[in-house]
Amino acid sequence: MNIFRLAGDMTHLASVLVLLLKIHTIKSCAGVSLKTQELYAIVFTTRYLDIFTDFISLYNTFMKLIFLGSSYSIVWYIRRHKIVRRSYDKNQDTFRHVFLILPCIVLALLINEKLTFKEVLWAFSLYLEAVAILPQLVLLQRTKNIDNLTGQYVFLLGVYRALYIVNWIYRYFTETHFVHWITWISGLVQTLLYADFFYYYFQSWKTNQKLQLPA
């Protein structure tokens, strides 16, 4: 494992922990999109089915369990926790799952490495991950005051994606037979979705003002 991949995984982990700690300590999920969190729960569930079939490393299995556990915990907090769920604004978080899930199913059936149940699910999880952040970005745009933690959560997720791209470039040149077109293209699309957010994030940081996305 190279340093970019490890740094990417660590920022991913940090983003999830920031979000979980925010929700757990201030007992509020204001500004957090339940839709995005549910999509991530689906993404991890469909991709990490391989913990039962392939063993890669302890690190790999451990991280998979963490991502599965954290995404389900966040969904649980927003839906079921008696205090947290009161802060969830259903009327702002209106993105429809089905508009993202259905096209991803179709795409996964058409473009996959092999037409098997596992491979189609794997491709589906990558396509869905690429667009899963959209409900969160839409919600950020609607929210007047984005709190620091929600901003940091999205920022860390964006950094994680960017580091994965550097990791693929590194692996392409240092390893033989390392070609995963599906991963790379959907990963690139995913990272581009953060570009706009990054722009405003750095602007607000430079001018020391509260982050606000234009409508």
Binding site: D50, D54, M63, F67, H177, T183
Partner: peptide, 10 residues
């Protein structure tokens, strides 16, 4: 030789 890249990423 294994030509299929391993899915070792998260």
């Amino acid at each position: 030789k294994d030509s299929k890249p391993a899915k070792d990423e998260l």
